[in-house]
Design a protein around this nucleic acid. Sequence first.
RNA 1: GCCCGGGUGGCGGAAUCGGCCAGACGCGGAGGGCUUAAACCCCUCUGGUCCUCAUGGACCAUGUGGGUUCGAAUCCCACCCCGGGCACCA
Length: 818
Amino acid sequence: MGEAYDVQEIERRWQARWRDEGTYEVEADDPRPPFYSLCMYPYPSGAAHQGHVRNYTFGDLIVRHRTMGGYAVLSPMGFDSFGLPAENAAIRTGVHPRPFTDARIAELKESIERLGAVYDWRREVRSHDPGYIRWTQWIFLRFLEAGLAYRKQAPVNWCPGCQTVLANEQVLADGTCDRSGDMVVKRNLEQWFFKITDYADELLDDLDDLDWPERVKTMQRNWIGRSEGAEFDLAVADRDDAAGDRAIRVFTTRPDTSFGMTYVVLAPEHPLVGDLTTPDQRSAVEAFVAEVSTHSEVERQSAEGPINKRGVFTGSCAINPFNDQLVPVYLADYVLTGYGTGAIMAVPAEDQRDWDFAEAYDLPIVRTVAPPDGWVGQAYTGDGPAINSRWLDGMEKAEAITAAIDWLEERGIGQRKVNFRLRDWLLSRQRFWGCPIPVIYCPEHGAVPVPDDQLPVLAPDDVEFRPTGESPLRSHEGFLRTTCPVCGQVAIRETDTMDTFVDSSWYYLRFADPHNTEAPFDPAVVAHWLPVDQYIGGIEHAILHLMYARFFTKALADLGVAPKALREPFARLFTQGMIRMGGSKMSKSKGNLVAPAKYFDTVGADALRLFHLFVGPPVDDFDWSEQTDEVIDGCARFLNRVWRLAMGEVAPVSGATAPAGDLARAVHAFVAKVSDDYDRWSYNTVVAACMELTNLLYKHVQAGGDTDIAEGMDALLLVMAPMAPHVTAELWERRHPGEHIHAQSWPTFDPALAAALRETMIVQVDGKVRDRIEVGAGLDEAEMQRLALASTKVQAALGGASPTKVVARPPKLINLVT
RNA sequence: GCCCGGGUGGCGGAAUCGGCCAGACGCGGAGGGCUUAAACCCCUCUGGUCCUCAUGGACCAUGUGGGUUCGAAUCCCACCCCGGGCACCA
């Protein structure tokens, strides 16, 4: 009996070797071509869960595969260590968030290492390190100088549960907080914003060239929500008071339908409401505005149908500049103050919302685009010739839009206008455990940036965490009181911290040059490694993190901090599927975690990794079920088979016969197939192919012949090396003393050898397979037909008839049609 | 409502360009071997229905119904179901 496969001992030993020998540490002057592989750095919530395991298994596989492919692979890891859970724990337990977070990081790091995932740990970045905070603040100040960071009073999304402001992106469609689930309410506060809208066009356009999942790109496009149209003024009719001097500015994407405008709608919060309301309508308008203000954003947006399209007439009319007709001015809750101009021209014939409102309020409907024959619907938004539109009549949609805008511009009434759904990024958070915003408020000089040489601004440690909902910074005199950098007078510090998405918007740049004390990073080093060649993470970051990181990259490049040419941070993105259990995402908060530790301690990391790779396509979600443990056991069983095979422990079986076919050809075909599978992320079929090859090698050994399986064995181990790194490293070293499998080149194959020497020609009669004939490569159609007709099975199927048609696809298939 | 995905054995999945009787590989299941016994390990079978003593064979089968084609899981049309995203953005 040979040596047992001691999983625990082998995995621990190789993990120590990779760490101690710095196997995956790289430098920018490495002569090999660079490859930057990155998994989204995790929020440290304690020991790894299966989602981490899956993510880092894919990431580690890429690192090892690319290294074997001849690249110098940058594989860094860090921790997104600021955030709410640590602060909430502090409030609960009184323990400062830092030791709490450091302990969670240690746990997570330990389980990542236990997985056998390899990183250049010298580059580790933690958001809460003073050395990282310093540069996050420094970047904020550069943005401030450039006008990309600004402060304004704004109605903000306030989460009562988290006691903080949220970004629009953090409010779910049902109006609840994406963290606590509480209903978000509106509040007016002075807040810091990043001007991400300056980059709206570029963020949209550059999506086209990214090798990202189409789904993620679509989500970003929708979020940016670019729409082209026109803005123009409508004069207020028959008023000699203040309102008469004003104009109502509207935004429309359909200026071609302007002749169909039958009323105008303002948002209830529109500044002209007071002026436009006539005395006899005042009480109705005031009642309406008051009622709308009591509705939350969500109630307002979730209202459905014409009944709920509530509105009120102001008593005033406006003049449609296209035909000089008077149109009534209404207020309605379906017009939003934050988009466009907060006022619209209503064209019920070509907009369903306007149609619904017009019907409810008995307003006229005039079609200005001829619907197709047989049209039975209400509003028609498709293409068609303009009608009832004087000089636009007969033009198609696109042409009419251009003509209408030209007309507006010639008369100085309006102009072409692009609007975006994207809003500026609100980054202020009323929390303690985040990166302090480096600003000082002076009674004389207002908001003054903290000078660079005073960075980082660090939160004090001697604070008390109380469940008051207020950041301890607000009541910490030592932190709060300071002096103005300009005049030296008493001043106070900003007590808000930054959204943690700020930290994660540039960490991938810091990884390239993590110990720089002169700058956040050296642009030359960043230019060497960036953009990230392969970024891997969850689909949940499709909008927020990925959009913010793209914005930061562009802004930093424009400010000369990052390389000018670096317009995008992540060249290729892969979003892995979620692990679900009982229909919902497996997560700590849902309490349905299946901890990896018990698998590490039994079947081992290699088996667990193999399972995650084998269970299905990486993009697909996976349902963890009662059967899952059995599948994992199956993976462990397979590794044991590989072990016994490689160690020469497989005994011949009496009566077994060697499988047909040349083993060398099978091995080359195997390498050809799996190399392709690796490139297209088809890891589940790689594992299947490895199992097949293992089974084939087994049969050769069991047959007891003199077939040498060494070449096949080596190819198998090399192909499996990125997937099951420990056992393959161990077996390789035993078979090739002094060698390290992960330093080997990826196996090559001979295409001629990989191609089958003989093909199996499929003979069909009327589309049904009737015979298979072994044929040599390169025979022609006539020969195929001759062979096919010679087959007794084919003759039987034909039943004496002769085919009326022959479809041949040399050399694999021939179909005889009767 | 709109926009993306996706429906294949008992289960996870495979089939890369429309072509090897669809179902690789694994899990589960059945039977057998090894063993005093069990575990481990090894071997065989395993989509359905039916015919045949058996070898073997027939028919059906990729959500449903049509269509294109010599040939469809794959392409087209309609519908059903599941998952995700967006949801008064003018």
